[in-house]
Amino acid sequence: MTWDESIARIPADVEQPDKIIGSFTARQVAIVFGTGAALYAAYTAISDHVPLVACAAVAIPVAVTAILLAVGQRDGISLDRYVLAAIRHQRSPKHLVSSLEDIPMPPTWIAAGSQRPPAPLKLPARGVVGDGLVDLGPDGIAAVAEVSTVSFALRTPDEQDALVAVFGRCLNSLSGPAQILVRAERVDLTETVASLRDNARELPHPALASAALEHADFLQELSARHELLRRQVLLIVREPVIGANGSDVAAARALRRLDEASRVLGSCGLTARLLDARAVAALLASCFDPSAPSLPDDDIALPGEVITTGGTW
C-alpha cells in the first residue's frame, strides 16, 4: 500500500478565506462577476434605446467601484465590509443607556430636534454574580482566573520540553469553551514609591535607607519618562446554562474546570488565582477604557451597592 506524499500548504492564518479563482476568494468573485452580470443584463435590455457611449459612461464607474470594493482593503478589512460597517455605524443610535427595557420617546413638548432617542446598551455580560462569575445571559456563565508566568528562555531544553508537554496536556483536558487572554495594562508606581519612602525611615542602617530612597527616586523618574506596562494573563472558561437550575450547575462546572486547570498548570510552576467579584468588575471596567489608569478594587462598586461620597455636608 502506497501513500500519496503530496505537500499541502496550510496558511499561518487559519481563518484566511479559500481562493476560488486565482487569488480571488468567493466573496471577491461574487462581487466582480455579479456586478459584471448585472451590467451586461442592463446593457442588453437598453442597448437598442441608449447609445453605447452613454452606457459606457454609466458602466465604467460602477465596474471600477465594484473592483475596488472587491480587492481594496482598509486597516486589514476589505472595503465592502468596511463600507457596510460604516453604513451600520451611521444608522445605529449613538446614545446608549444601560437599561434592559425599551427607551420611550420623549414628550412632544421637548424640543429634541432631529436627534435620535437613547437606545438600550446591549452587552454580552449581564453582570457579575457570586464568586466573581460573569453572567453571560443565554451564552452561559464564565469564570475568570489570573495566571502567573514563567521564563521559558531561561529553562534548559529538557525543562522546556516538560513545560510544553504540561501545557499540551492542559489543552487536551479542556472539556468546554475556554479563552487565554494576554492583555497589557498601565502600571502606577505612586503607591510603591510612597511605600519605599515611608519604610526607608524605619530601616536599621543609614546605608539601607539611602539605597531605598535612591531606588524610590529611580522608580519615580522611570515612571515620569516612560509609559510602564505590565502583562496580565487571564484564563476564562465558559459553561452553558441548561434547564431551570442551569445557572447553579454551570457555575459549579466552571469553578471545577478552573480548579482542574490550576492543578495541571501547577505542574509547570504556574499559579491560577480565581478573581473575585470586585476584581472582575474592575477588569471589565478597564476593558471599556484600556488607556485609563486602573482603579483600586475598593473604588469599584458592585451591582446593587449604594455609592456614597466622602465629602462633608
Score class of each variant (00 low, 15 high):
residue 227 E to S: 08
residue 276 D to N: 08
residue 138 P to S: 08
residue 60 I to W: 12
residue 304 G to V: 03
residue 88 R to Y: 15
residue 71 V to S: 03
residue 154 L to K: 03
residue 302 L to W: 07
residue 311 G to T: 14
residue 207 A to E: 14
residue 248 D to T: 08
residue 63 A to Q: 00
residue 107 P to A: 09
residue 30 A to P: 02
residue 119 A to K: 07
residue 148 S to G: 00
residue 24 F to S: 14
residue 12 A to D: 15
residue 103 I to H: 10
residue 20 I to N: 15
residue 184 A to M: 14
residue 271 T to N: 01
residue 268 C to T: 08
residue 65 T to E: 07
residue 312 T to K: 11
residue 166 V to Q: 00
residue 103 I to D: 07
residue 245 N to E: 13
residue 212 A to C: 05
residue 185 E to I: 02
residue 40 Y to H: 14
residue 293 P to G: 13
residue 30 A to F: 02
residue 78 S to G: 10
residue 69 L to A: 01
residue 99 S to V: 15
residue 309 T to E: 07
residue 277 A to P: 01
residue 72 G to R: 04
residue 252 A to F: 08
residue 19 K to Q: 14
residue 283 L to R: 06
residue 213 L to D: 11
residue 5 E to F: 13
residue 300 I to H: 08
residue 239 E to F: 08
residue 271 T to S: 06
residue 279 A to Q: 14
residue 290 P to K: 08
residue 72 G to N: 02
residue 187 V to A: 01
residue 154 L to N: 06
residue 38 A to N: 09
residue 158 D to I: 12
residue 143 A to D: 00
residue 297 D to L: 10
residue 278 R to L: 02
residue 231 R to M: 02
residue 261 A to C: 02
residue 173 S to G: 03
residue 256 R to Y: 10
residue 151 S to G: 04
residue 293 P to H: 13
residue 243 G to I: 10
residue 258 L to M: 06
residue 159 E to V: 07
residue 106 P to R: 04
residue 243 G to V: 09
residue 86 A to C: 14
residue 89 H to Q: 14
residue 72 G to D: 04
residue 215 H to Y: 08
residue 133 L to Y: 04
residue 303 P to C: 12
residue 99 S to I: 15
residue 297 D to F: 06
residue 241 V to Q: 06
residue 175 S to N: 11
residue 246 G to T: 05
residue 68 L to F: 11
residue 54 A to D: 05
residue 135 D to N: 06
residue 189 L to A: 04
residue 204 P to H: 01
residue 73 Q to V: 05
residue 38 A to I: 12
residue 27 R to G: 01
residue 268 C to F: 13
residue 7 I to L: 11
residue 247 S to A: 12
residue 80 D to H: 13
residue 156 T to W: 04
residue 71 V to E: 05
residue 85 A to H: 10
residue 253 R to N: 04
residue 181 L to S: 08
residue 288 F to E: 14
residue 82 Y to R: 12
residue 93 P to T: 04
residue 66 A to N: 02
residue 201 R to P: 09
residue 110 I to H: 04
residue 72 G to Q: 00
residue 38 A to Y: 06
residue 115 Q to Y: 15
residue 68 L to P: 12
residue 174 L to K: 05
residue 266 G to K: 03
residue 198 D to R: 15
residue 139 D to I: 13
residue 232 Q to Y: 05
residue 21 I to E: 07
residue 159 E to P: 07
residue 312 T to H: 11
residue 57 A to Y: 01
residue 209 A to C: 12
residue 20 I to E: 15
residue 125 A to D: 09
residue 156 T to K: 10
residue 166 V to R: 09
residue 151 S to I: 10
residue 57 A to V: 06
residue 243 G to D: 10
residue 303 P to R: 15
residue 313 W to C: 12
residue 150 V to K: 04
residue 224 A to T: 08
residue 24 F to E: 09
residue 37 A to W: 06
residue 273 R to A: 05
residue 107 P to S: 13
